[in-house]
Simulated assay, not measured.
Amino acid sequence: MNVLVWLIPASLSLGALGLAGFVWTLRQGQYDDLDGAAWRLLIDQDDLDQGPLAPRSAKTPHDEL
């Protein structure tokens, strides 16, 4: 029974620490856009580099040959 004097406060403090971490992530906005991260994972980077919003590189005379 003496071990319960240590285990109950330890478990309550670990639970409070976990709850505080969860509330902190909520306030930081970690769960705002769950679908966007999933879709960004599926987009191929090569497709983005060749799309209409791709950065334009400077053309050299050798590119026209």
Score class of each variant (00 low, 15 high):
Leu48Pro: 00
Gln30Met: 03
Ala37Val: 11
Trp24Gln: 09
Gly51Gln: 02
Ala20Pro: 03
Ala20His: 07
Arg40Asn: 13
Leu19Val: 13
Asp49Arg: 10
Leu53Glu: 01
Leu4Cys: 06
Arg56Pro: 01
Ser11Leu: 15
Gly51Arg: 01
Tyr31Ala: 13
Phe22Ile: 12
Asp46Asn: 09
Leu12Cys: 14
Asn2Gly: 07
Asp49Cys: 01
Ala58Met: 09
Pro55Gln: 06
Val23Lys: 10
Val3Trp: 11
Asp46Leu: 01
Leu48Tyr: 02
Ile8Leu: 14
Asn2Ile: 13
Ile8Tyr: 12
Asp35Ser: 13
His62Cys: 00
Asp46Glu: 11
Ala10Asn: 11
Gly51Ser: 13
Leu34Asp: 10
Gln50Leu: 04
Lys59Pro: 05
Tyr31Arg: 11
Asp49Val: 03
Asp46Trp: 04
Leu41Met: 03
Asp35Gly: 12
Val3Asp: 12
Leu34Asn: 10
Ser57Leu: 08
Leu41Trp: 05
Val23Asp: 05
Tyr31Asp: 13
Gly21Pro: 00
Ser11Val: 15
Leu17Gln: 09
Ala38Gln: 06
Arg40Trp: 08
Leu48Gln: 05
Arg40Met: 11
Leu53Cys: 02
Val5Arg: 13
Pro52Met: 03
Leu26Arg: 10
Val23His: 06
Ala20Ile: 14
Val3Asn: 07
Leu19Asn: 02
Trp6Ser: 10
Ser13Glu: 04
Ala20Arg: 13
Pro55Ile: 01
Asp47Arg: 10
Ala37Asp: 10
Arg27Gly: 09
Gly15Glu: 02
Met1Arg: 12
Ala16Gln: 06
Leu53Tyr: 02
Ile43Ser: 00
Gln30Asn: 00
Asp63His: 15
Trp24Val: 07
Ser11Phe: 14
Leu65Lys: 02
Ile8Glu: 11
Asp33Pro: 03
Gln30Pro: 00
Lys59Val: 12
Asp63Leu: 03
Arg40Gln: 13
Gly15Met: 10
Leu48Asn: 03
Arg56Asp: 08
Trp39Thr: 12
Leu48Thr: 05
Gln28His: 02
Asp32Pro: 01
Arg40Tyr: 09
Thr60Gly: 01
Gly18Met: 13
Trp39His: 04
Asp32Ala: 09
Pro61Thr: 07
Ser11Lys: 11
Leu53Gln: 02
Ser13Asn: 04
Ala10Asp: 07
Pro55Phe: 02
Phe22Gly: 06
Asp63Met: 05
Asp47Leu: 05
Leu19Met: 13
Met1Thr: 11
Ser11Met: 15
Ala58His: 12
Trp6Phe: 15
Asp46Thr: 09
Lys59Gln: 11
Val5Pro: 01
Arg40Ala: 08
Gln28Lys: 07
Leu14Cys: 06
Glu64Gln: 08
Gly18Glu: 05
Ala58Phe: 11
Leu7Cys: 06
Trp24Arg: 08
Ala20Tyr: 15
Ile8Asn: 05
Ala16Pro: 00
Trp24Phe: 11
Ala10Leu: 15
Trp39Lys: 03
Ile43Gln: 05
Asp46Ala: 04
Pro52Ser: 02
Gly36Ala: 09
Ala54Arg: 06
Thr25Ala: 09
Thr60Phe: 07
Pro61Ala: 07
Pro61Lys: 07
Ser11Gly: 12
Val3Cys: 01
Ala10Glu: 12
Thr60Ile: 06
Leu17Ser: 08
Asp32Tyr: 02
Gly51Pro: 03
Glu64Pro: 00
Glu64Asp: 06
Gly15Lys: 01
Leu65Cys: 00
Ser57His: 08
Asp47His: 06
Gly18Ser: 14
Leu14Pro: 01
Asn2Tyr: 08
Leu12Thr: 15
